[in-house]
Write a protein that binds this DNA or RNA. Structure first.
Lengths: 112, 112
DNA sequence: TCAACATACCTACAAGTCTTAGGTATACAG
DNA sequence: CTGTATACCTAAGACTTGTAGGTATGTTGA
């Protein structure tokens, strides 16, 4: 089970919020590709995790959607609401602190 | 729910393995205190998560235990087995990569 | 032509981890 | 003698994610 593509709990929704902070509108498939590209294929968001996460963020009022047909295929674009932006800033900062702490723990030197 | 003390899924067992890499023998309560100290109180391992995690690592053969009474109280010391050491090295490296990827994603600059 | 692959969405179920909320017991300080 | 720190533990539930499916269109190459 522990392929190195596994995500860390709680990070997915923050990643989504972060990507939407940097790019006004994104659709699901685009998000999976972007993450793959940005991590040189080392991280992969599964669709079974992504779509429910998107729907949850939408239900929480953090995202709005707009469906559009492009090249014969339907795309559902997501963007941040005002609340979404606020939450994004807050959650990104929290996760940042968490990552710093984890990195500090992992780079400990033995206290002889 | 989202107190900033939340852990990231999968990180707890790696933290345990890492601490035991740096310190031969540790007991549960000691681990909770060490993590609190090393992160300036920003991260707290709950006992409800820690003890099951320790038991699981032991069941997997990565840790061995030795109980000892100190100052009237029983302490259960955990240390790495040979397999535990191997797994520790591997999991620490994997989590490191994951943290790097997450940090890269979180520190993205907008691509105008 | 038609098979395979990329694009694009979705859900149900299971697996797994963590939090919450308890429990027991000893030592020590006020 | 009450509260706090130390020290262990478990059960139940919440929550997130992975697995494994499903549908459908467009493109590419054999």
């Amino acid at each position: 089970m522990n392929s190195n593509q596994q995500l860390l709990k709680g990070s997915l929704s923050v990643i989504i919020l972060k990507l939407l902070e940097e790019q006004e509108r994104m659709y699901g498939y685009e998000i999976t590709q972007k993450v793959k590209a940005l991590t040189a294929g080392q991280m992969a968001i599964t669709e079974g995790a992504l779509y429910p996460a998107l729907h949850k963020l939408e239900a929480e009022g953090l995202l709005t959607t707009e469906t559009q047909v492009v090249e014969g295929r339907a795309r559902k674009y997501y963007s941040l609401t005002k609340d979404g932006h606020t939450e994004a800033v807050s959650r990104i900062s929290e996760l940042g602190i968490m990552l710093e702490n984890l990195q500090r723990l992992l780079t400990l030197k033995p206290a002889i």
